[in-house]
Measured scan of single mutants.
Amino acid sequence: FDIYVVTADYLPLGAEQDAITLREGQYVEVLDAAHPLRWLVRTKPTKSSPSRQGWVSPAYLDRRL
């Protein structure tokens, strides 16, 4: 999967189903980028939180090589 970094805090609107909150600087794996406005991502697990999966706007993501 492609690795992206979150460029700004992402707080989903209440109406968005299956969306997750992301923090600036967080790394995520993009699982599904087929839709231009919503990408399915999975967060990297940390010592304090397990990995999470949900939909985010790709405008908040920047690809890492």
Rank of each mutant, 00 (worst) to 15 (best):
L40Y: 11
R38P: 00
R38S: 07
W39A: 00
E16V: 08
S49E: 15
F1E: 07
A33R: 14
D9A: 07
T7L: 14
K44Q: 14
Y60G: 05
V41H: 01
Q17S: 12
P36D: 08
E29H: 07
A15Q: 14
A59N: 11
W55C: 04
A15I: 12
D9P: 06
W39R: 00
Y10G: 04
R38D: 02
P50H: 06
D62W: 07
D62V: 14
R64D: 14
T21M: 13
R64P: 15
L61D: 01
D18P: 06
T43P: 02
L31W: 03
P45R: 08
S49D: 13
T7W: 05
D18M: 07
G14Q: 13
L11H: 14
L31M: 08
Y4H: 03
I20E: 03
D9N: 08
A8K: 15
T46Q: 07
L22T: 01
S48F: 14
D9L: 05
A33T: 10
I20S: 02
L11Q: 12
A15W: 14
V5Q: 08
D2T: 10
S48D: 15
F1S: 08
E16Y: 08
A19G: 14
W39G: 00
Q17Y: 12
R23Q: 11
E16G: 10
V41Y: 01
R63V: 11
S49V: 10
K47S: 13
L37M: 11
R64L: 15
G14K: 11
K47L: 13
W39V: 02
P12R: 06
L31K: 02
S49N: 12
E29I: 13
A34G: 12
Q17H: 13
I3M: 09
S51R: 06
L13R: 11
G25R: 02
L40H: 04
V28D: 00
L65C: 09
A33Y: 12
Y27D: 05
W39F: 03
Y10V: 10
D18H: 08
A15D: 15
V28L: 03
R63G: 10
G14R: 11
G54A: 05
A34M: 11
P36N: 06
D9C: 04
R42V: 05
G25A: 02
Y60Q: 03
E24I: 14
A15Y: 14
H35W: 06
L61E: 01
R63C: 07
I20G: 03
G14F: 12
L61A: 00
I20R: 02
L11R: 12
S48R: 05
E16R: 04
V28F: 02
R52E: 12
I20C: 03
G54V: 11
W39Y: 03
A19I: 07
E24W: 09
E29K: 05
R23W: 13
P45Y: 05
L31Q: 02
V41G: 00
L22I: 04
Y10S: 03
F1A: 09
E29Y: 14
Y27F: 13
Y4S: 01
T43M: 04
A15E: 15
D9E: 06
Y27S: 06
Q26Y: 03
T7V: 14
V6N: 00
W39I: 01
R42N: 03
P45W: 06
E29M: 10
T7R: 10
W39P: 00
V28P: 00
E24Q: 14
R42I: 05
K47V: 12
G54D: 02
L37R: 08
A19T: 10
R42S: 04
W55R: 02
K44Y: 15
